[in-house]
Structures are given as structure tokens and as C-alpha cells.
Write a protein that binds this DNA or RNA. Structure first.
Lengths: 202, 202, 202, 202
DNA sequence: TGATAACCGAGACGGTACGTCCCGTCTTTTA
DNA sequence: TAAAAGACGGGACGTACCGTCTCGGTTATCA
């Protein structure tokens, strides 16, 4: 998203302080006023920045929001990995419970819903999202599953992408559609049922 | 959503023709111009109606869109049921393939994304959606699963709500987040994996 | 303005109480909210009357306002006459001072400005006004001047219409254009100057 | 009315071309559709301008109209003076006949009525009018009378403000109230009667 | 060590849409 | 059949933002 500036002759460079101010303002504003009332005008005012400075570097308010997430996630990642105690079921429950907590946290919930909406309606943004944010995250999840697969705890021919979607998809979906309460217990049952399948065992 | 009019004295009654024109216009417009450019002004113009007639009866454009879906679904339901040949896996694949086809159909895709977005950002609308649209649909799905459960094809202690979410959630999610292609094959694999679980079978 | 109803058989007759309520409401409202914000909707609401009842009997809100004035003036006239003590100058000063007081009275000022505006922009209303309200008033004024003319206090060939306009016109104009303070002293000087003329006497 | 822009740092400046387009459009529109149907929306459309550009610089459509008059008058004035042949009566008749012609001219009549109405209902506008348009005009008239006064053709103690109002007030009033035909002969008789007074001469 | 060119804040601009008010017409129900 | 109630198609209101476009003012190389 963020264009890389050439360091060619005679060029004044992009202001890093303005960039951070804009991303911070966007993230805070979407929490406060909600996605529908988020405006470029408002972001600029809050950041103490001219509107043109936003339009110069981002194509849409969705892109700004996206970069705001990217800034946050870059602060936190760095070779992160899911817990691997050897007990797949327990580990997955731990992680899904954490996801539930995060989605229920109002500080992250509203911005994430906003980003989600932008992705739904902007294929280009969706592609960047898949590459920069969702992709790395999914890889981390798949890595844990791969480890379990090697240990014979998962079917040898299991499609790991599908597996990840079966574990996190219902969660994400219930959250977006407000289809019911998101509780730790729900996370637990989801893990159990996904691992064992819907059919009777034996 | 639609308020029931009392037939008290001296009351001019709601115009049914305007109501239908508005809902039809909203549904058509969201297909043509997309969710972001859908406007109350546009709906009113297309329907040949004053803006006030919309604001008089609906609190938001999301509510209009919702009622448009309701109108369609009411035309189509009437004790609908999922196929029940006795072969659960085959029946589920049939149904999920149909869902995939519907989501990929541009005539329904865009309006559904729009509705989905409105639900994400409007808890009130979400509640009505759960009650009037999603609820009845889910009941139909659960009915088919219940039949299988009675036949011993599903675990006796299976939570049918969770089962439905595990079957349709990943689909819905991949569609909303554009997380990958929605194909009939994907539907098939989803059904198989959900039924058998992620673990190795024996 | 007010249509005369036939008292023919089988016809529900015009409601006198509604008529009075409308006129009263119009007069009060124009005082309270001013001419610009006076609306048929508001008059109907205040009078507890359907809008149609207004449109049935009056062609415009100006006509309503006009009838409101008519109602007031009809309560007050009945062969009124200007004072005639034999001292023309003193009598005119008395009358013009009264006019000044009336124009400065906020209870009558705003409605009169409103009526004035309607007349300015509606020739039809202007004609009715000339016939029903201004005409009779002017006749009364001219009657006093005629008496003075007979007594040799006014030029024998004086055009009395013009004379009335020279006495009241500057007053009215200063009031409408807010061209200066409307004081009793101003009225006095106006009378003196009009009677004696601008030229040096002798 | 027109705000003087400070030339401080970082200020985008007012567009002179938009300003002229707006004033021209307002003046033309009020002629064509009349005062009652003059709308900010219409002015903006005719001028090819956003509505906000009007609301940014003028508080009301009356203020726009006023500035339109100001623009015209500023094009035409520049030390204008009334004719002074030494014959006061003749000069005044010439000028009042010109006033009559102007008021009867539909190109100026309708806009002037509109401005007049706005002034009647907006004290603030009235003050600006008195200072910027009516004041200078009145001064020119008073100058001619002052000259006559020095020549002994007007009473030495005559209040020139009052004199101007006595000459032009009845004209203005008859025009606004449509109290009768505005003819050159009327202007003549008004001048004669005002100069000589209503009383018998000697 | 300027010059010079891009970036920056500010905010005016032509527009679109908002949600509200009121217009004048109409339909329904009651008295 | 007049009157209350009020919904209707429509036009305009004044406001919020859109994305574009000047304006000075301020850096930060390069010639």
C-alpha cells in the first residue's frame, strides 16, 4: 500500500510524523465514531494534516485503515508462532479462546469490523489483505497444524487451508453476522467438533 | 421492520405500490451501482417516490435493503425443506453447491454483500435479520440434520447449531473475505471434512 | 377573498369555528416565528385543522393573513372617523403619532410587515387589499382633509389622494425600509413640512 | 457584506470569478422567476457553482441579492450628481420621472422588490443597505437640495433628510403597495405639492 | 550556499447526498 | 359533503464530505 519513495535528486521526502499521525487518528476515530461516520476529512483534522497529504499517499479511506492495522501488527509480530505443547486440542482451544477475547474487545472490534467491510467491497484491498495480513497469520496457523499432522494427530491427506477455515471461519462468521454470543465455551466446542467431525465416532 | 398500520379514524394509509417500488428499486440499484454508491436519493428517484416516503417507513438504507430481501424470500419460501434422500453427505453437497452458485451469481452476490455489511454495523438490524431471515433458514437446515441424527448418521450429542455453522460458516467467510475461489469442489471437500473431522479416521 | 357559501339543501356548511381558529392561528404565528417561517402546515397544526381546510378556502398563505387582518379591522371599524377639532395640524399630528405607535408595537408590526410583503409580490392580493382594507382607511383620511379644504385650510385644487400619500407615505416607507427611527417628533415634523411645503414661506 | 480576506499564511483565496457568476445569476434569476421562487439551489446551478460556495460567503439569499445590487451600483457610480440647472422644480421633476421609469422597468423592478422585501424582514441587512446603498444615494439627493437651500429656494431650517423622504417616500410606497399607477405626471404633481405644501399659498 | 522542487498545512472549489421541512394534492374515515 | 388526519410526489433547505485544486511556507538535496 505504502509507496516506497525513491531517494532521487531534489526531492523533499515523505513526512514520517504525518504518516503516523494519520494512521493513529484513523484507528482511534473508527473506534470512536464507527465505520459509517469515519471520514477522510475527520482523519485529517484529528491528525492535524492537510487532506491532500492523505490523498497523496492512499487511494481510499479503506487503504488508510488497512495501513493502520499493518502498523499495529508490525509492531507485534516478528516470527510469532502458535503454542505447541504436543496436545493439539488444548493448544487450539487456547488460541481460539484468545481470538474470541480479541474480537470481543471493543478497542479492536470496531476497527476490525470496518476493515472487514472494506475488504468485502474492495477486491483490490482484499488481495493486499490476503498477502500482507491474513496470509502470514494463516501460515502461522497452518504451521501448527502441520506439526500435528507430522505427529499423526491429523489426517495425512488433510487440506490445511480448509482446516484453518473450518476452525476460524465459524468464529469469524458468528462475529460478523452477530449470529450468537462469542464465548470461550463456544470456542472449545468448535475445536472438539471440528477435530472429531459431525458423524458418530466409531 | 414493516410497521403494522392501525385502522383508526382519519388515517391515510400506507401506499403498497410505493412500498414495492422502493424495495424493487433498492434491490436493482445495489446490483447496478454497488453498495458504496447506493443512496436513498437514488432509490427514491428510481422508484418514482419522494425521499420522505422512504424516511417515513425505514430508519436507514440498510433497513430498506433488508426488507427487499424479506420480500423476495417471502415470495419463495412456504414450508421449504432441504432434500432428504437418506444419503446425508450427498444431500449436503447438493445444497452447499447450490449455495456456492448463488453466492457467485452477480445478481444476488452484490445485494447480499451489502446486506451483510449493514448487519455487521447495525446490531438492531442484525437482531431482526436473525429472527426473520437467518432464523427460518437455519431451522430448515437443522431439520435435515435432525433427520440424519435420528438415523444415527450424526453424533447423538451433536449441537445442531454448531453443525450448521461449521458447514456454512467457512463458505460464507471465504466469500465475504474473498479468501479464495468458491467452487463446487470446495463445497464437496468442506462437507466431507466436516462430517469426518480433522483427525485421522481410525 | 372569503367565498360566500350558498345555503342550499343537503350541503354541509363551512365551519365558522375552523375559520376563526385558522385566522387567529395565522395572526399569532406570524408574530411568533416571523413572516419567513410562517407555513400553512404550521397554521393548520396550531389551529387544530386539516391542511385541506385551509386550501379549500384560501388560495395562498398571504390570503389567510389578509383575512386575519380583515377580521381584526371589522371588529374595530364601523364608521370610524378621524378627530376634527378644527385645528388640522394638531389633528394630523395626533393621528400620525397614533400610526407611529401602532407600527412600533411588536404585536402589529410583524404581521403588518408580512402582509405588506405579500402585497408587494402578489398583484391580485394588492387589488383586494386596496379595495377592502386600504381603500376604506384612505377614505376616512380623505374625509378629514376634505373638511379642512372646505374650511380653506388646504389648497382648493389639492389632490387629496396625493395629500394622503404625502403624509403617510414617508412614514410607511421609513418603517418598511428601516430607514430611521419612527418617533412622535418625526410625525410632527412631517405634518408641519407637508403642510407648509419645502420652499421658504412668503 | 463581502468579507475582506486576510492574506495570512496557507489560505486558499476566494474565487473572484465564482463571486461574479453568483451575483449575476442571482440578479438574472430574480427577474426571471420572481422573488418567491428564487432559491439558493437555483442560483448555484445557474452560476455553475456548489451551494457551499454561496453559504460560505453569504448568510442568506437576501445578502446575495444585496451584493448583486452593490456590484451594479459600483459599476455605475463614481461621484454621480443630480442635475443642477438652477431650476430646482424642473430638476426634481427630471429625477423623479427617471425614478418612475426605473421602477416601472421590469428588468429592475422585480429585483428591487425582492431586495426591498429582504430588507423589511432582516434588520441586519437593512443596516448594511442604509450604509452602502441607500446612504450614498441619499447624500447625492441631499447635495442637490443643499445647493437649492443656499440659493434660498428652500426653507433655511428645512431638514434635508425629511425633505428627501417626502419627495421619494410616496413614490416608493405607491410602488411597493401597488397603490396606484406610477406615471411621470404623478411625479410632477408630487414635486409641486411637496415644494409648495398642502396649504393654500398666501 | 543558494536554487529549486517536492511536501506540507490550510482550505476554497464544483459536486453529491444527507435527513428535514413544507408545498399543494390525494385518500380515508367520521360526524 | 365538510372536516380531521395524514400519506404522497416533489422541491429546496442548510450541512457534511467527497476528491481536486491552488496557495504560501518549509525542508533538503544538487549545482
Amino acid at each position: 500500500m505504502t509507496t516506497q519513495r525513491k531517494s532521487s535528486a531534489g526531492a523533499a521526502r515523505r513526512s514520517e510524523s504525518s504518516r503516523r499521525a494519520i494512521l493513529t487518528a484513523a484507528f482511534e476515530l473508527v473506534q470512536e465514531v464507527g465505520y459509517a461516520k469515519l471520514s477522510v476529512e475527520g482523519i485529517a483534522a484529528r491528525a492535524g494534516v492537510g487532506k491532500q497529504t492523505i490523498y497523496r499517499w492512499w487511494p481510499s479511506k479503506g487503504a488508510v485503515l488497512f495501513d493502520a492495522f499493518l502498523m499495529l501488527s508490525e509492531g507485534a509480530d516478528g516470527e510469532a508462532a502458535l503454542p505447541d505443547t504436543g496436545d493439539l486440542e488444548a493448544d487450539l482451544k487456547t488460541v481460539l479462546r484468545a481470538t474470541v477475547a480479541e474480537l470481543n474487545d471493543p478497542r479492536y472490534g470496531e476497527p476490525m469490523r470496518a476493515l472487514s467491510t472494506e475488504i468485502t467491497h474492495d477486491p483490490e484491498l482484499a488481495a493486499v489483505y490476503a498477502e500482507r495480513l491474513d496470509g502470514p497469520m494463516k501460515e502461522i496457523k497452518k504451521e501448527r497444524l502441520r506439526s500435528a499432522q507430522r505427529a499423526g494427530q491429523l489426517a495425512a491427506d488433510l487440506d490445511l487451508d480448509l482446516a484453518v477455515e473450518m476452525l476460524w471461519g465459524p468464529l469469524q462468521n458468528r462475529w460478523l453476522q452477530r449470529g450468537g454470543p462469542l464465548t470461550p465455551e463456544y470456542a472449545d466446542r468448535l475445536v472438539e467438533t471440528a477435530l472429531n467431525g459431525l458423524r458418530p465416532r466409531r
